[in-house]
Amino acid sequence: MRLEIRDLAKTYPNGVRALDRVSLTIPTGMFGLLGPNGAGKSTLMRTLATLQEADAGSAKLIGVDGGGDIDVLRDKDAVRRVLGYLPQDFGVYPRVTAEDLLDHFARLKGVVDAKARRETVRALLQRVNLFAVRKQKLGGFSGGMRQRFGIAQALLCDPRLVIVDEPTAGLDPEERVRFHNLLADIALDVVVILSTHIVSDVADLCNHLAVIDAGRVLVAGEPDALVADLRGRIWRKTIDKSDVEAIKSRVRLISTRLQAGHTVVRAYGDGAPPEPGFEPVDPELEDVYFSSIAGYVGEAVDVPAVAA
């Protein structure tokens, strides 16, 4: 099974081109969609989740459950039946308990049988570690707990397409790890799209990724391969803070960081150091991200076909 997105485009009424001919092939497993704020990630997520219309292009879920294909854009009802969606910014009914609301969603997703529903709700709450507080009102949940609840409702009824939009923004380190564990459990024969601007999330979890900015896919592929591509092209130098502006105009700077009080800059250089004083370093995924955002690498590259 895979999700084929071809030339998806959307322009908002105020002229902003949120999606500019986005094409991606997303296999089963964890797929990371990286991009800065305003890149078009959420628009893409919402379009796939049947909440928004695209102006042009297509998205098809191919080979669902060994059977047919689903036209994601046209056949909304069919998509919703196999969808699990965790939006970026959502609320909950504050005066309802976790168990009751999850039960309600289970019912909405079509679990008619009360006994089956009870079982699945319990299991999911246990999976996301909210079982102990299942009878508490959602209004009192912390951010991390609310996110876990969110993923629980997304996982109801064996979804085949799971879309998770910026799930760890605002979570503390411990909560983030827990969330990652939850996600990691899903991915076997399900397409999971995780959109985020936190590079390490993708590094930890995803076996495929794409970088998107201003509505366009900049790079796509497997993390290791993309990082390997950058070997020998990333350089590092420690400089004075006051020199940052000056150096920007001379080299292809990709990031500026503070390390133990010193300013360390990384730059892109094809084969040779961008200027004297730079030393070569092993590239990381973050370098892939910053380089493509800066425009030094990348054109949309299709992930090579993988056995479904």
């Binding site: 909440l51 919703r80 910014d89 969603f105 997703k109």
Partner: peptide, 12 residues
């Protein structure tokens, strides 16, 4: 309640 995204993507 900002739950419309979740509710609307349900198959109901």
């Amino acid at each position: 309640a900002r739950m419309d995204d979740i509710a609307d993507s349900m198959p109901a």
